[in-house]
């Protein structure tokens, strides 16, 4: 199996606003030399709390931002050096699901319009048929495409967002806190849906969350991040059974019922 995603020692720094006229502002290292590879059809879970750099990492994988150091290679190609036109076409192969099901769909566009957007942007044909197919894959009906986002519940909206992400049949799906805003019972439905789609479509997935037990139920490998640095990484079963780092232990304990 070949690596679909190869992240090599990426760092990202932000300069904060200066506090005095004479000195330049402090520098925040949001992501500090993070590396991993992801095989086709597999899932990597990235776990960390606020300020861990996990969302910045997601933005670099999605090529919304370029790393200051290191490189993100998707299917053998370095994303941030690709010409803009080529990158836009390549985008159909890696898609993203966002955290907030209320904010990730344009309120003024129908569901079908939003799902079709990645197809239109990359000049695909048979748009209508593929939108219906995507709706079906996420457990919605073709008629739902004519409705607007506000007519759906949070869980259904997240299904719509997933439909938009898979409509181009990507090889990689990046999910940033994709179930965090959902109720527990709906969360389980969406996690199962992601597992179904992964098996059906052979998707590779980067699943990012603050919630280690959630990550553990669908990731093959887990990377634990804190303050921009990787603190522990390994196969899920081993990491859950015998976490080495104290921080990992505390994340694991937080999700359990016993003090």
């Amino acid at each position: 199996m070949s690596a679909i995603l190869d992240v090599r020692a990426v760092s990202r720094r932000y300069s904060l606003p200066r506090r005095s006229l004479l000195r330049s502002g402090p520098v925040l290292t949001a992501v500090d030399r993070v590396s991993f590879t992801l095989e086709r059809g597999r899932t990597l879970g990235i776990v960390g709390e606020s300020g861990s750099g996990k969302s910045t990492l997601a933005r670099m994988i999605m090529a919304f931002e370029a790393p200051d150091e290191g490189e993100v290679r998707f299917d053998g190609r370095t994303l941030h050096t690709l010409p803009a036109g080529e990158l836009r076409l390549l985008r159909r192969s890696f898609q993203m699901v966002f955290q907030d099901p209320w904010g990730s769909l344009d309120p003024r566009r129908t569901v079908a319009w939003s799902i079709a957007e990645p197809l239109r942007a990359t000049g695909a044909d048979q748009v209508g048929r593929r939108v219906d197919e995507a709706l079906d894959q996420v457990g919605l009906r073709a008629e739902d495409g004519r409705k607007y986002p506000h007519e759906f519940s949070g869980g259904q909206r997240q299904r719509i967002a997933i439909a938009r992400a898979i409509v181009t049949r990507p090889a990689l799906l990046v999910a940033d806190e994709a179930v965090s805003a959902l109720d527990v019972s709906v969360q389980a439905q969406i996690l199962n849906l992601l597992m179904d789609l992964q098996e059906e479509l052979g998707l590779a997935m980067v699943f990012i969350s603050h919630d280690l037990p959630v990550v553990a139920c669908l990731a093959d490998h887990v990377l634990v991040m804190r303050a921009g640095r990787p603190v522990e990484a390994g196969a899920t079963a081993g990491l859950i059974a015998a976490p080495r780092d104290d921080y990992t232990k505390s994340l694991l304990a937080a999700g359990g019922l016993m003090p």
Binding site: A188, M195, E199, C217, L218, T236, L252, G255, G256
Partner: peptide, 18 residues
């Protein structure tokens, strides 16, 4: 429905399905 609570262990079953 809550992962990590109900006593189920994550991973794959015998035929490799998650």
């Amino acid at each position: 429905a809550r992962p990590g609570i109900g006593g189920q262990t994550p991973g794959r079953d015998a035929d490799g399905r998650r």
